[in-house]
Amino acid sequence: MMHRREWVYGWLFLSPALVFLFAFTHYPAVKTVISSFYSTPRGKREAKFIGLENYQTMLSDDVFWKVLGNNFWFAVGTIPISIGLALLMALWVNSHLRGRTLSRVAFFAPTVLPLIAVANIWMFFYTPGFGLIDQLRSGLFGLPAINLLGNPDSVLAAVIVVAIWKEAGFFMIFYLAALQSIPPVLREAADIEGASRGYYLRRVLLPLLMPTTLFVSVNAVINSFRLVDHIFVMTEGGPDNASSLLLYYIYETAFQYWQTGYAATLTVVMLVLLSILAIGQFFLFDRKVHYQ
């Protein structure tokens, strides 16, 4: 009898959250896959089944490949550097160095700013002829003005710098949490054994921080798909799509060209990429993290 009552209560307590969870996460995810096989409805003409046509369009869409490549380089440019800096920041902030509290504030502050505000602030640095970077270039070295955001060769790098600035302090937090859970006995033992700091870092700290590194890197990968707000302010994907990322292209396709069928197809690509990464995460983490 008792068990039956628990069933009822379990479902009762769960149902409000599940309704919204299904309505705005699972249903749209499944619906995206279905929509990707249909044409975009126009006016009175309803969406009709067109099989793989959207996918064929996508494979021959130069912009899609360019955007996918951009997203790859954006990830490659952001993830290792922001994680490396995050680890360095955490080690410093967790040590007994003077000024560590102030440094922690400086490192973490970008995390609480909206990315859209961050983009506004950095725009001022990048403005040709007038921004701080050009002021320094002409003031110190007498170099001519450069347009970092207007040049297809430099725009992605300029956007990557902003993402690193925003993210490193956030990842620092995870390392800080991990470092504080490491028993100080290990450090003392290493000191008694006469281990150098470098040795202690390489052979003790880094292996212990491995689960954190994996967790942070998976988060960083998800973020490299998800964070596109700064593109809106800084470049709008230009010049010539050189700084457009996948989610930004999905936005453009769906809400500027109103090609919702094709946008669904692009979203499927993103879902597949994320799933592959999730499976990768599962194997990497394996027994290191237990959710149950």
């Binding site: 379990g10 996460t25 995810a29 989610l247 809400f255």
Partner: peptide, 27 residues
């Protein structure tokens, strides 16, 4: 509570950590 479907539902909840509403803008 113990009830049928608990672990499947929990997995579905965790799935949202990966597939966030942020990327399902079209639907």
């Amino acid at each position: 509570f113990r009830f049928p479907g608990r672990s499947i539902l929990f997995t579905l909840v965790l799935l949202q950590l990966l597939v966030m509403p942020d990327i399902l803008i079209v639907e």
